[in-house]
């Protein structure tokens, strides 16, 4: 009997079912998840662009920038690459290279764009985390407790029916244009999408025998949810999180551009573009250059998310599939 045992141990563990010669055809899942993620080219490219943007935002003070809020009306509407004397309100002067030119009030667009990246990235990450966290909570409850499901999901349907931008405008009008208000205002309309997704995954995972086994082991319900269901439902959420992040960056820019987000003196990409809008015909760089940063960021986040999905989502990860 020993020999058979060894043979069994050596044979492939097929992923499911009783009859699975197919398992032979599948490469072994020995490589760790992290390494598979990092081997994906979309993740690499999107991740690299994001990393550069984040580093630029963090090290903005050392990258040829000045205070993004000081203005020098004498240096208004400079073209990109102009070098000029900058005079502060206190009367000090220094030589400054306007890498991306200046706006009509003489503020340095390069500085405003780099500092604006801080806000955009903060908003994107914070909204993604907030929406995913609350969405997980709601989705777990709705998916696991059948009695709560109907009520919770109808509320979610209701939230989804409110136009996101209008909702954000009214929240900002009520509570003022602070970063926290903007983050909360953008996150709330995203929550139902995350909650719906998690609920549907929970509905399938809760039927898995290992969940039943945990219940039979007298595992408390919160532990069943956190230890057995959530870890096995989390992959699609990470992917969804990246898309929420991209959407949040865009919505924040839209709110600022419309003048209903953060105060206009704050350096955000939407604010910079709003400032440049009036003189777009003569000085298009005031809109185009921050616009390029915005598009690049959103594109990078989406490419990164696509790459993650290719690796994590089994539906797109089939043998000879799309990858």
């Amino acid at each position: 009997m020993k020999t058979i045992d060894d043979a069994v141990a050596a044979s492939v563990p097929p992923p499911s079912g009783m009859h699975d010669d197919e398992a032979l055809l599948r490469p072994r899942r020995r490589r760790s998840l992290m390494r598979r993620v990092l081997a994906n080219w979309s993740v690499r490219i999107g991740g690299a662009v994001l990393l550069i943007l984040i580093l630029m935002a963090i090290f903005a003070p050392w990258l040829g920038t000045i205070d993004p809020q000081v203005m020098d009306p004498a240096n208004g509407n400079l073209l990109p690459g102009t070098r000029a004397e900058f005079m502060t309100l206190a009367g000090d002067t220094f030589n400054h290279l306007y890498i991306m030119g200046s706006d009509s009030l003489g503020r340095d667009i390069w500085s405003r764009t780099l500092y604006g990246a801080r806000i955009s990235i903060t908003v994107g990450l914070a909204v993604a985390m907030l929406a995913v966290f609350v969405g997980i909570l709601i989705g777990l409850l709705a998916g696991y407790f059948r009695r709560l499901d109907g009520v919770i999901m109808r509320i979610m349907d209701g939230v989804m029916a409110i136009p996101g931008i209008l909702f954000a405008i009214s929240l900002v009008a009520l509570f003022g244009g602070t970063l926290t208000t903007v983050i909360v205002a953008i996150a709330i309309p995203e929550i139902p999408r995350v909650a719906r997704l998690l609920r549907s995954v929970v509905l399938t995972v809760r039927e898995e025998p290992y969940v039943e086994a945990a219940i039979a082991l007298d595992t408390p319900t919160w532990k069943v949810l956190l230890r057995h269901i959530l870890p096995n439902a989390v992959a699609p959420l990470i992917i969804q999180g990246t898309f929420v992040c991209a959407a949040a960056i865009l919505v924040e820019a839209i709110l600022s551009f419309l003048g209903v987000g953060l105060p206009s003196e704050m350096a955000t990409w939407g604010n910079i573009m709003a400032d440049g809008r009036a003189q777009f015909n003569q000085y298009p760089h005031g809109v185009l250059l921050p616009g390029i940063f915005l598009s690049l960021t959103v594109l990078a986040v989406n490419i990164f998310g696509d790459g993650l999905r290719d690796v994590l989502d089994p539906k797109f990860n089939k043998r000879g599939g799309e990858a």
């Binding site: 563990p13 097929p14 992923p15 499911s16 079912g17 898995e208 025998p209 290992y210 039943e212 086994a213 945990a214 039979a216 082991l217 007298d218 595992t219 408390p220 230890r227 057995h228 870890p231 096995n232």
Partner: peptide, 26 residues
């Protein structure tokens, strides 16, 4: 209970040890 499908009756994200001590710890 011991279930039918050996591929689905253990939580794939937990070590075997964690699965086994779960009951006694509870």
């Amino acid at each position: 209970v011991i279930f039918q499908d050996p591929y689905r009756s253990l939580n794939p994200r937990q070590t075997v040890g964690a699965s086994i001590i779960e009951g006694p710890v509870n």
